[in-house]
Design a protein around this nucleic acid. Structure first.
Lengths: 160, 160
DNA sequence: TAAAATACCATGCTATACCATGATGTAACA
DNA sequence: TGTTACATCATGGTATAGCATGGTATTTTA
């Protein structure tokens, strides 16, 4: 059975063992399998967390850069370089686990628990404490920006 | 045979059992089946209630973000974290029930009864007492803000 | 050949798919 | 119009499959 939508969602807490092994949430695996693709992870450029997506998305990003005639978007170009330089494919074993590298774990300050946070086409992996702080920060920021959110909402956003 | 409109309507009171299981109103299920999609629920950002919609609606949002050429935007990052990090897919069993999570139930203060309230493209799930208060508030607010509406009502209404 | 990386096996738990029952409303029919 | 048969729906209970996780074997590579 195939599905129409491929969204990383929800927030899942999974254990990381001494070798860096961690179960990719079952819902995430289902997406990857359905697309017949692979997971790619890299260090977030702005937060102490790991960012992941399906390889297709990076493929798309690369195409956009390639097709772009914007010679002045040096910044975006640089950022893209950073991501591709850092990104790595991760295959999961028969039980659905991937092995995160020392570099990634260190950047996200993850030791024994990994928090998977859905972001639609992407997802993030956080240290427990950092994520809870981040979530609080975002909720506060969004509350403060209520007017903007409300404006968006009437257009398309599913949130009240 | 297909239909043109897919609107969540009406207000339905259903029981929530000890495991968080609750029947999705039959009308709602019909919509989901017709669309060949799934239900997605998340905590309302502004009210103590659960919000739900069809997955396609979130898919649209994700596509808009993806196509906005804004791979690195901070504001969008915050918003997507909040929406997709909180949202979760809910599939219903052969009898039409979904299992709400502890997080959602707690946010909406739901224990044994869930009130499904149609809102068009979306719907909400409330605690009984909270919904009755909310409905009263809404009615009062509408009356206060719509003197024109009141005028029409007193003209046409045969009673009172 | 030692050490590390990776694939496979085992287990307990929980989520979820299925069966059964009762209630309610609707259609058929006399 | 009153009664009965049927269909649909909400709800309670239960078994099983899938999941996360710990452990072991096998392959790789330095």
């Amino acid at each position: 059975m195939s599905r129409k939508t491929f969204l990383f969602m929800d927030t899942v807490y999974n254990k990381v063992d001494s070798k860096g092994r961690v179960s990719l949430p079952a819902d995430y695996r289902a997406i990857v399998k359905e697309l017949g693709s692979e997971i790619v992870c890299y260090r977030s450029l702005v937060s102490p967390c790991i960012e992941g997506c399906v390889e297709d998305l990076l493929e798309k990003l690369a195409s956009e850069i390639e097709d772009s005639n914007d010679f002045f978007s040096q910044t975006q170009d640089d950022l893209t370089n950073l991501i591709f330089g850092d990104a790595k494919r991760f295959t999961f074993d028969s039980t659905g686990r991937i092995v995160l590298t020392e570099k990634l774990l260190k950047h996200a300050e993850i030791t024994d628990t990994a928090v998977f946070v859905g972001k639609g086409r992407k997802f993030q992996i956080w240290n427990k404490e950092n994520w809870e702080k981040e979530e609080a920060r975002i909720r506060a920021a969004v509350s403060a920006q209520r007017p903007v959110l409300n404006a968006r909402k009437t257009e398309n956003a599913p949130h009240e």
